[in-house]
Design a protein around this nucleic acid. Structure first.
Lengths: 278, 278
DNA sequence: CGGACAATTGATCTACCTCAAAATTGGTGG
DNA sequence: CCACCAATTTTGAGGTAGATCAATTGTCCG
């Protein structure tokens, strides 16, 4: 809510200018290439984009709702979440962002975002000027379409969240969120089994699911007690994907990890998304 | 939910082929021109798009989640809503659509929608083939950008809904929804005062706000009892915009109606919706 | 070792839900 | 124009999921 002192400065190690070969926008291109049709040319072009890097400590905002900063933020490492706040100060988390995501991509078109974005854990973030990005889109319509699709994927996530918050009970919401996090980590290659980073404290979980912290705590204990998940030290392990996804009523279709689509559309709908963990 | 018998046929008067000068896609172009920069050329080009019309009776679906139908639906008249359903059959309404909206615009890029769309009251709907639309986008990047922005506006709406459902109490949610509906009617020129069509029954309201029908009914009585609104026969009249928008915690920024400020936005914000009754 | 923050627990309260029935309304056909 | 049916709205009476308040404990880190 408060664009406080940390406005542009996150600590001693902020604003490292690029040039470091070891850390570039590859998380971004990798994501685009994975989820859309991204030509090699486009990938190269993205690699030439000007940008600079910042390290954002856990809990700090790095995109502020309403601000016109003329750039997009690319998560290079870590997890972030976007949120809005009621006038009375009630916060609603709107979505999570992993490495490769551009949480404020909307600002490229609209000039600003209606949501703020904060780091869940320590994040490396790349800032890319709108000017450069939109010029690239003008030159390469295929890239513009990819980015369009990218915003559509994000929209699909929020729709599912709305369903989650509006129509599932607390346990289901929590389970659903966990399924999404694990699945998305898998989708971008950040894990290959049932465990992944989960740097969300109970306050953030509460605000993501429209619940109170106390209630989150108790339902979390349920999930643990039922041996569905193990969660400690910011690390989530799904103990029984099968049972968890039932509790969660989870159908990963909305994640759009299914590019090269139709295959499963023939025949029994729903037959495709059976348990991903053999 | 069930792509039942009414799959493609809504009644005797469906599938009127276009050519009728009196009813065309102008609601669509009008909306785009109002909210974005749409050149005259683009407007003309849209007018030449092939399409056909259907009349959808209240309560019937005309877009089905998951279906690949190869076309977009343009609301020409009436109100519709999109929704998703839990496996247990709990429905969540995700957004409302007025004349000029394209509720399944995402399908142009993604091939299909993850949400279904139903008519709230009797709707006239125009169906435009994806092929024609995407060809036009390829020829006219400016139009593609407009449509991109259009999807972003929709995304902004859902984000606000998520905040609404997640973090406001029942009365606030209801009031907020009403504010949005009136404001949007104004924004597209469907009303110029504080009253507008409101063809949502209490079941739909409940599913839009994550509440039960009984509870909706009771909070509705509150709003009436406090003389905030008058709602009958599918017609909503805001009796005190000032008090309603406080109850609703309503800030229209998320609607992105801020370009070409619709007259009433000049000067004292809120002055427009003052008591119409001296 | 101390201080801040996060997780946990207990106790109480209430906003909202569910079930079930009654009253209205609106549309339809005679 | 009226009678009738189906859908919607309204009312009543409990029940419960989840909220709130207030400590207490645990954990991380400098």
């Amino acid at each position: 809510m408060s664009p406080d002192s940390s406005m542009q400065t996150f600590g001693s190690d902020e604003l490292k200018v690029s040039g470091d070969k070891a850390s570039d926008l590859r998380a971004f291109t990798a994501r685009l290439a994975r989820f859309h049709d991204l030509s090699d040319d486009d990938q190269v072009a993205i690699g030439l984009l000007p940008w600079h890097e910042a390290v954002v400590p856990a809990g700090k905002d790095f995109v502020w709702a309403g601000e016109r900063v003329g750039r997009c933020a690319v998560i290079l490492d870590g997890m972030a979440f976007s949120y809005k706040v009621t006038r009375e100060g009630r916060r609603q988390v709107l979505g999570l962002h992993l490495a490769g995501d551009v949480p404020d991509l909307q600002s490229l078109c609209l000039g600003r975002t209606d949501a703020s974005v904060a780091a869940a854990n320590r994040c490396r973030v790349g800032f890319v000027p709108h000017a450069a990005l939109s010029e690239l889109c003008a030159q390469r319509p295929s890239l513009a379409e990819v980015l369009w699709r990218e915003t559509l994927s994000q929209a699909a996530l929020i729709r599912e969240w709305l369903l989650n918050v509006g129509r599932r009970d607390a346990l289901g919401r929590l389970a659903h969120l966990m399924c999404e996090v694990v699945w998305r980590h898998r989708a971008v290659g950040l894990t290959s089994d049932h465990r992944c980073s989960f740097p969300l404290n109970q306050a953030v979980l509460a605000d993501a699911l429209g619940l109170s912290v106390v209630h989150i705590n108790r339902r979390l204990q349920d999930l643990r007690g039922q041996e569905l998940v193990d969660l400690k030290r910011q690390r989530l392990t799904v103990l029984s994907w099968e049972r968890l996804s039932v509790v969660a009523d989870f159908d990963p279709g909305y994640l759009h990890v299914d590019r090269e689509p139709p295959a499963f559309l023939d025949g029994d709908p729903g037959a495709n998304f059976k348990a991903p963990f053999p």
